[in-house]
Design a protein around this nucleic acid. Structure first.
Lengths: 193, 193
DNA sequence: CGGTATTCTAGAATTATGTTCTAGTCAATG
DNA sequence: CATTGACTAGAACATAATTCTAGAATACCG
C-alpha cells in the first residue's frame, strides 16, 4: 500500500494488479488489464513476476508480511496476557481496516494454494507469531505451549470469519461494533476476561 | 458424493471436475481435462453448466447444502445448549472428514466469489442455521439473538481455521485429537463448559 | 402412431488469454 | 567508448475457454 515495493515499476504493476483483482477477481483479470492499468508492457510484467500467479503471490507475501509485522510488534512489549490478546485483536482488525484491498486479496489467494509450493517463508511468519505468543502465555501460566497455539488459531479463525464478511461491506460502524465483542470472545476462548 | 446430482450426465461431469479440482486446483484444471475424465463432450458440459465457474458453483452449492442439512438435523432434536454445541462441532468435523474432496472445494471456491452474484440461496442456508440456533440459545437464556449469532460465527471460524490446515494432511488421528479441544473452545466461547 | 418441438450431445471453429520470443533501450562498469 | 547485463516493448505463439453448427435422442401433441 504505502510501500508496496521499492522499484517503481514493480510497484505500479502490483498496484494495478491489486486494483484489478479487487474489481473483477483474480480469475477475471487478464494480464492485458494489468498492462493497461499500469502502462507497463506485457514483457516487462513477465520479466518481473514470471507469470500471473507470481504477481498474486508477491501481493500475498507483501500483505502477510506487513500484517505479521504489526502483530509481532504487539508481542514485543511486555503486557498482561489479557491486554495482549485484546491488543492483537485490535491490530488484526486495524490492519484489515487500513488495508482492505490487500486484505481481500489475502482471502482470495489463501485458499487457492493447496497445490502451490511457493510458501515456506510465509509459514515461518505464522510460526514465529505462534512461538512468541506461546512463550508469553507460558510466562503467564496459561496451559501448555500447544494449548496456546491451538487457542490462537481458533481465535484467528473467529476473527477471520468476521472479516471475511466485513470485507464485503467495509462498513466502519460495523467494524467498531464488532471490535469489543470479538475481543471478549477471544478472551473467553482463553478462559480470561 | 453419494448423490451429487440426479442426472447421470451432470453427475459424471461434477465428479470428474471435483477430482480434477482437487488434483490440480481450479485454475489448473481445463475443460478438456474434465472432458477426458468424464467422457462427456465439451458441448455437453457447456450445455449443462454454462461455463467453468458454473461447474465450480454447482459443486459449491451441493456441498454447502449437504453440510447445512447435517447441521440443521442436529438443531431439530431438543437438547441442552452445551450438548448441542458439542454436537454441532461433531457434525461439522464429521462432514469434512467424510467429504474431504468437496470440503477442499468449498475452501477453494468460497473466497473466489467476492465478485460473483450467484448466491442468494446459499446465504439463506446460513441464515436458517443462525436463526434456529438463536432460538435455541434464547430458550436456554443465553444472551440475545444477535449475541448468539456472533458467537456462532466466531466458533465456525475457529473450526474452519483448523479444518483449513487439516485438509492438507487429512490425518484422522489429528482430527480426533482436535475434536474435544475444539468442542471445549467452542463452549468456552459461549461461556459454558 | 407420425410428426414436431425440445433438449441433449458432439466436435469443429472461433475467440480470448497466458506466455514466450526477438529486438531494441538504458544504465552501469571497465 | 565498448561491452555487458538488466529492463522494456510489443508482436508472435500456444493453449484454453467458449461458441457454433449439425445431428441424435427424447418428450410432447394431434
Amino acid at each position: 500500500m504505502d510501500q508496496l515495493d521499492r522499484d517503481p515499476t514493480r510497484r505500479r504493476i502490483l498496484e494495478a494488479a491489486l486494483t484489478c483483482f479487487n474489481a473483477t477477481g483474480m480469475a477475471g483479470t487478464t494480464i492485458r488489464h494489468i498492462q493497461e492499468a499500469s502502462s507497463i508492457s506485457v514483457g516487462s510484467i513477465y520479466h518481473h513476476f514470471g507469470d500471473k500467479e507470481g504477481i498474486a503471490f508477491a501481493l500475498y507475501q507483501l500483505g502477510i508480511e506487513d500484517m505479521h509485522q504489526a502483530l509481532l510488534r504487539r508481542l514485543g512489549g511486555r503486557a498482561d496476557l489479557s491486554l495482549t490478546i485484546r491488543g492483537c485483536v485490535d491490530d488484526y482488525l486495524d490492519w484489515y481496516r487500513d488495508h482492505a484491498e490487500l486484505g481481500r486479496h489475502l482471502f482470495q489467494f489463501s485458499d487457492t494454494r493447496f497445490v502451490a509450493g511457493r510458501e515456506s517463508a510465509i509459514a515461518a511468519l505464522g510460526r514465529e507469531f505462534l512461538d512468541r505468543f506461546g512463550e508469553l502465555a507460558e510466562d503467564e501460566g496459561w496451559g501448555g505451549r500447544l494449548d496456546a497455539e491451538f487457542a490462537v488459531r481458533f481465535v484467528t479463525g473467529g476473527c477471520r470469519e468476521f472479516l471475511r464478511s466485513w470485507l464485503v461491506t467495509q462498513d466502519s460502524v460495523e467494524l467498531e461494533a464488532a471490535r469489543p465483542r470479538l475481543q471478549d470472545l477471544a478472551l473467553a476462548t482463553f478462559g480470561l476476561h
